[in-house]
Write a protein that binds this DNA or RNA. Structure first.
Lengths: 353, 353
DNA sequence: TGTTAGCACTCGTCAGGTTAGAGTGCTAAC
DNA sequence: GTTAGCACTCTAACCTGACGAGTGCTAACA
């Protein structure tokens, strides 16, 4: 069977109507549309064909049609292709209230990401998740040891991409202020600019030689550094708008709501799931759309997820995901994500200059 | 009407049965209990009296009884009083898996608190919330300026209670490494040990005099310090076990689940609400029980909340709250919180030594 | 006087039946 | 190829009656 232009138009009309109402769409509803001036009977014939092609289904005999995953997939692919073509055209979305993000007082990228997740959730009425910035090839920018109390020092570790982590180290030996500065100097000289892999045994033994008496401090600092790198690998995850799932009855029936909320609370699972996502079907830019079963998280098989990869330069990057029902407004979500990306780029460039 | 021992026993039997089943309790159920060998008819008479006293109600004419807020309040007060008396007795609860918390690698108190919230939620099957450590009279312990890139420095601010915050400052002027160290020294000399109130105009102008050319740096650092104090006031809040509310149908009917989850996600509202709680009825130790309407959060009027105040010394303290249905197992929750508190004390003492 | 057995009564739940309406597929005519 | 008409199907909503849990009241009992 052939999928001609009219069938496509009808399919898309069904999808868009279903997106708005959440109810199965009948032939009468479609026939009322002006652009394809057709009687319900004709629509019914076409619908029957579309069903045969696996693009729509009836929940039960005397009901209207709803799109299948395959139907959505067709719709989304077409949409993304269209968008790629006319990417130049100005689009007039209501501007996101992202101004706040531009404030100079971004002390932690993480805070900004969380805020971004909140803005996205509020604007789309879906649930958002954002993985913290992350890099396979991040390097040690510098570290800073400061005396705190008797027997305790504060070690601040800074990685490329401005990932900062504080470690309070408890020492058995006493280290004087001057000695600490000396150590600080040595450690930075030896370690600055190295990645985790590059801090190998020879570097370490060289360091320990040079450190003289203060082997304990050095090894604890090294532990802290290793842990910072490791933590960086563990994808911190921020979510927002979890309660939005209650807007969509198809996501809250049975235990679904509970399972979804649980998944969102288990940030770790979520983080590695979203982190493992890679472009399946070659799609536009960094934006990926996963529909129903394509989502690699069991409890989200009734959802669709749209992800985008943001990049803060230096190879530091992370993912933003928007989770909604399969009938989510893909167009709006993709547009919104795209706008968010350009904002992020703007912020990044500004910081960089 | 008088509340004799037998009435009390029946009331408590009703409460405990209702806690287990979540179903209204009938007279037959109670009469089956061995300890008060009574016929259903007698129980009915007593129940009728209890209802007149406002301690129990019937959801509808031909149903069993469920406790009222007043009934729970009586039960809880009695329980807390009992517990105070026999506080010495060893209690054999299944030990909480708190060992993890004892690990030395507590780089941030916050992480430990989150983990604690998770353990509590998993063990009680209720929802937990924990406010971050917080102090009205916290002081600046020290600060540390480090050069980062061209035009940017990292300012680490440490408050009493080991509250550490990083601030990346973007400067218009260029500051050399030596000058930065000098500034570092001056700032620490002038500011260390002061609380927010004590950093007044005269301190600031003195500082600016001494700083010479680098007024910009000083004022930006002061902003960062002020913000750290302010942030400290804003109660970070961790929650865990939100999905547990789905275990209790009385909390998930209608829009209740959605509202509860929303409230939990709005950490800020939650923080100030839980922060504002003060001991209403004088109760045992630091543990407070709020039942139904006593909870100062609109969406939690169908819940009970048990809170405990933890203290990390130096006046630094925070609150733990356990949120569950009104029929929650108060005994278990109070015991568990008490055990957690002693664990925390243990950790704190160990860190201090 | 407190306790208990018996009984009529109330009310919510559940299964079964009915109805109205939405939507379809098919057929025949245009 | 399109459309009108019609019989058919299925769900949701509503009603109904039977059932059972639980009560309150009364009268008898220890």
């Amino acid at each position: 069977m052939e999928l001609d232009a009219r069938k496509l138009e009808i399919l898309f009309a069904i999808i868009e109507n279903y997106q708005e109402t959440g109810e199965p769409v009948g032939s009468r509803t479609i026939s009322k549309l002006d652009r394809l001036n057709l009687s319900p009977a004709t629509i019914r014939n076409e619908m029957s064909d579309l069903e045969e092609m696996g693009l729509i289904v009836q929940p039960h005999t005397s009901a209207g049609r709803i799109p299948t995953d395959k139907g959505y997939r067709l719709y989304v692919d077409r949409m993304l292709a269209d968008q790629a073509k006319k990417a130049e055209e100005p689009r007039d979305l209501p501007a996101l209230p992202m101004q706040d993000l531009l404030t100079r007082r971004i002390d932690r990228v993480e805070e900004m990401l969380l805020k971004m997740a909140q803005i996205l959730a509020a604007n789309t009425n879906y649930t958002t998740m954002v993985t913290g910035p992350h890099s396979r090839k991040s390097k040690l920018k510098f570290l800073q040891l400061s005396p705190m109390d008797k027997g305790r020092i504060l070690a601040v570790v800074v990685l490329s991409g401005d990932i900062v982590k504080n470690n309070i180290l408890t020492l058995d030996e006493e280290v004087g202020s001057d000695e600490l500065m000396e150590l600080n100097f040595i450690l930075n000289k030896r370690l600055t600019g190295l990645s985790l892999e590059e801090i190998n045994l020879s570097v370490i033994s060289g360091l320990k030689n040079e450190a003289g008496d203060h082997v304990e401090v050095v090894s604890k600092v090294l532990d802290a550094v290793a842990e910072t790198f490791a933590k960086e690998d563990s994808y911190p995850v921020y979510t927002s708008g979890a309660p939005n799932i209650f807007r969509y009855p198809e996501l809250t029936g049975g235990d679904r709501a509970s399972e979804l909320i649980s998944t969102l609370e288990e940030k770790k699972t979520l983080g590695s799931a979203i982190g493992s996502l890679t472009s399946p079907a070659g799609s536009r830019q960094d934006i990926q759309v996963y529909i129903g079963d394509e989502v690699p998280v069991e409890s989200m098989k009734d959802c669709s997820v749209v992800t985008a990869t943001y990049s803060l330069g230096d190879g530091v990057q992370g993912k933003i995901g928007i989770i909604g029902p399969k009938r989510m407004n893909y167009q709006k979500v993709v547009d919104t994500l795209q706008e968010t990306m350009s904002h992020l780029d703007g912020i990044f460039l500004q910081t960089e200059e």
